[in-house]
Amino acid sequence: MKDLLSDAWFTAREFLQTFGASQLFLLRLLMLTPRALLRPGLIVQQVYATGAMSLVIIMVSGLFVGMVLGLQGVDTLSRFGSEEAVGTFAGLSLIKELGPVVTALLFAGRAGTALASEIGLMRATDQLSGMEMMAVDPIKRIVVPRFIGGVISMPLLASVFTAVGLFGAYCVAVIVMGVDKGEFWSQMQPNVDLVRDVLNGTLKSFVFGVAASMLAVFEGYNAIPTAEGVGRATTRTVVITSIVVLVLDFMITAFTL
């Protein structure tokens, strides 16, 4: 019994400590961001690695998510005799929820793991200590550009996901299921608001981008410098990012609705 209690206490303390450390780390990243922007070459490289290289998975996933939305939307709405509303249905759910959230989850799997294992391996092979020896701050040189690259990539990836998803929904609903082409768009346009829906979705994806990139570089930077430690850091990146993204999603939605 006593063991259990002390175990729980230890876990809780460890959790709090990790949480606080990650917040301090984020603060440090944000403070170093303006100076890192003076070296755009490094950031461009990271935008390429995290963003451009994730395009294929994002676009294929978006296409299929949109197509499923088209099928399910037409199937469900036809029970109420209003198949035309599938445009509104797909548009709102993609722009407000699925676009940012699914993109963030895929981003954690595709780019977050790459960041974490890359930095973790640098830690394990003493490259980060080597940099410190040469009086190069590894956070400034390695971590911050990766963080900024992720933050820039996420909203763009989410927009691509949403646009491709809408295209998929359009293809299925209009071409396969026979919903009227004009109705699809004309039902969507009056119901989707630029500020409340599109801007809100973009804001969400930006927040998720900050969270996912920060967690990935944090886990990588603090990885235990062994092969096993790097593996653990990679796993934790995906797990923690997924949970944090879903919790943040609920909180943002609750506050902005």
Binding site: V44, Q45, V47, Y48, G51, A52, L55, G91, I95, I152, S153, P155, L156, L157, S159, V160, T162, A163, V164, L166, W185, M188, Q189, V192, D193, L194, D197, V198, T202
Partner: peptide, 20 residues
Amino acid sequence: TGLFVFLGFAALLFLSTQTT
């Protein structure tokens, strides 16, 4: 990178003009 950023902004433009 240029292509990616261009595509991202094109998607954003499409969302804000065509769906609203």
